[in-house]
C-alpha cells in the first residue's frame, strides 16, 4: 500500500511542517509517506475535489487498486477529520474481494475474520439466514 498526501502547499512548506510539527508527533521521525504539492490545484480539479473559491483541496480520499481503478472515495469539508480505521477496513475489504475474484463479497460492517457472503442463485432471498443485522454494528 502506497500512501500519498496532497495539498496546494509547496514542497518547502511540506518540509517545514514535517520538521516542525508532524515529526514531533511521530517522535522525531519523518512523515512516512510522500507529501505531494498541487500548487495550481490541477490534480484536485482532476479528482473533482478542488474548492475554486477557497483555492484549496477539500478532504478527499481515494483508494486505487493495482490496475489503477478507483475503488472508493470519500470527500469531506475541512472541519471534520477522517476515520483512519474505516479507511483501513475498506482497503482490507477491497483487497479481500479482489483476491476472491468475485466468489465472495463483504457485507456491511465486515472486518477481517468475519463472515463473507458467496453470491449465487442459492443466496437470493436467503441472506437473512447467512447474515444478521447486528453484524453490521459489531466490531
Amino acid at each position: 500500500m502506497e500512501v500519498f498526501s496532497i495539498s496546494v502547499d509547496s514542497v518547502f512548506v511540506h518540509k517545514i511542517w514535517n520538521d516542525n510539527e508532524l515529526g514531533k508527533m511521530l517522535g522525531g521521525k519523518d512523515v512516512p509517506f510522500a507529501m505531494l504539492s498541487d500548487q495550481n490545484g490541477n490534480i484536485g480539479r482532476l479528482y473533482g475535489i478542488y474548492d475554486e473559491e477557497a483555492g484549496t483541496e477539500t478532504r478527499g480520499r481515494f483508494i486505487i487498486d493495482p490496475d489503477g481503478i478507483v475503488q472508493a472515495f470519500e470527500v469531506m469539508t475541512p472541519p471534520v477529520g477522517r476515520n483512519v480505521n474505516e479507511t483501513l477496513r475498506q482497503i482490507q475489504a477491497f483487497q479481500y474481494v479482489r483476491e476472491a475474484k468475485g466468489a465472495e463479497v463483504t457485507p456491511a460492517g465486515w472486518r477481517p475474520g468475519k463472515n463473507t457472503l458467496k453470491p449465487g442463485p442459492q443466496l437470493v432471498g436467503n441472506v437473512w439466514k447467512e447474515w444478521k443485522v447486528q453484524e453490521a454494528f459489531e466490531e
Binding site: 500500500m1 502506497e2 500512501v3 500519498f4 498526501s5 496532497i6 495539498s7 514542497v11 511540506h14 518540509k15 514535517n18 519523518d30 512523515v31 512516512p32 509517506f33 510522500a34 507529501m35 505531494l36 504539492s37 484536485g44 479528482y47 475535489i49 477557497a54 484549496t56 483541496e57 477539500t58 478532504r59 478527499g60 480520499r61 481515494f62 483508494i63 486505487i64 487498486d65 493495482p66 490496475d67 489503477g68 475541512p78 477522517r82 479507511t87 482497503i91 477491497f94 483487497q95
Partner: peptide
Amino acid sequence: AFYQGKFVEMNLADYKGKWVMLCFYP
C-alpha cells in the same frame, strides 16, 4: 513531493501493480 528529507518527483503511473491511497487535505 517532499519525502523523507528529499524533494522528489512522484508519478502515479509508477505505482501500477500496487494499492494506492491519495489523501487530499486543505
